[in-house]
Computed example of a mutant assay.
Amino acid sequence: MNWYGVRCVFEWAASGGRSYEERITLWQASSADDAIARAEAEAETYATETGVAYLGLAQSYRLGGDGVPGAGAEVFSLLRDSTLEPDAYLDAYFDSRTERQQR
Rank of each mutant, 00 (worst) to 15 (best):
L26N: 02
S19R: 15
I24L: 06
T50V: 03
Y89V: 03
L90G: 14
F76R: 08
D87L: 13
G17C: 11
L78T: 08
P69I: 03
F10S: 04
P69Q: 07
N2E: 11
E42W: 05
L79P: 01
A53W: 01
V9S: 11
G67K: 09
W12L: 15
T45W: 09
A71I: 10
A43K: 07
Y4S: 05
R38W: 01
S60F: 01
A47K: 05
E99W: 09
V52P: 00
R103A: 14
A39G: 04
D33P: 00
T25R: 12
Q101W: 04
E49W: 06
S15T: 14
A39H: 01
L55V: 06
G64E: 12
S60K: 04
A32G: 15
S15H: 13
W3T: 07
A32F: 00
P69S: 06
R80M: 12
W27R: 07
Y61C: 03
M1D: 08
T83W: 10
E99A: 14
A92H: 12
V9H: 07
T45S: 13
S31E: 09
E74Y: 00
A58Y: 01
T98A: 11
E49R: 14
D87S: 14
D34H: 07
E22K: 14
R80V: 14
Y93E: 12
R18Y: 10
R23N: 09
Y54K: 04
Y20T: 04
T98E: 11
V52D: 03
W12Y: 14
A13F: 09
P86A: 07
F94S: 13
Y46V: 07
E42P: 00
A88P: 00
G51N: 04
V6N: 01
A58E: 03
D66K: 07
R62P: 06
L26G: 02
L55N: 06
R103I: 02
G64S: 12
L26D: 01
V52C: 12
G70L: 07
V9T: 15
A14D: 14
I36M: 04
E74R: 13
R18Q: 13
E42R: 03
D81Q: 13
T50H: 15
W3Y: 15
S15K: 12
R62I: 00
L90V: 15
G5S: 06
N2V: 00
R100D: 10
R23P: 01
A47Y: 02
D81N: 12
M1L: 11
E74W: 00
E49P: 02
T25E: 10
E11L: 11
A41M: 09
S60A: 15
T25P: 02
T45C: 05
E22D: 15
G70M: 08
L55F: 04
E99D: 11
A43W: 06
S82L: 08
V68S: 07
V6G: 02
Y61T: 01
E42S: 08
R100T: 10
G67Y: 09
R97K: 12
V68M: 09
E42A: 14
A29P: 03
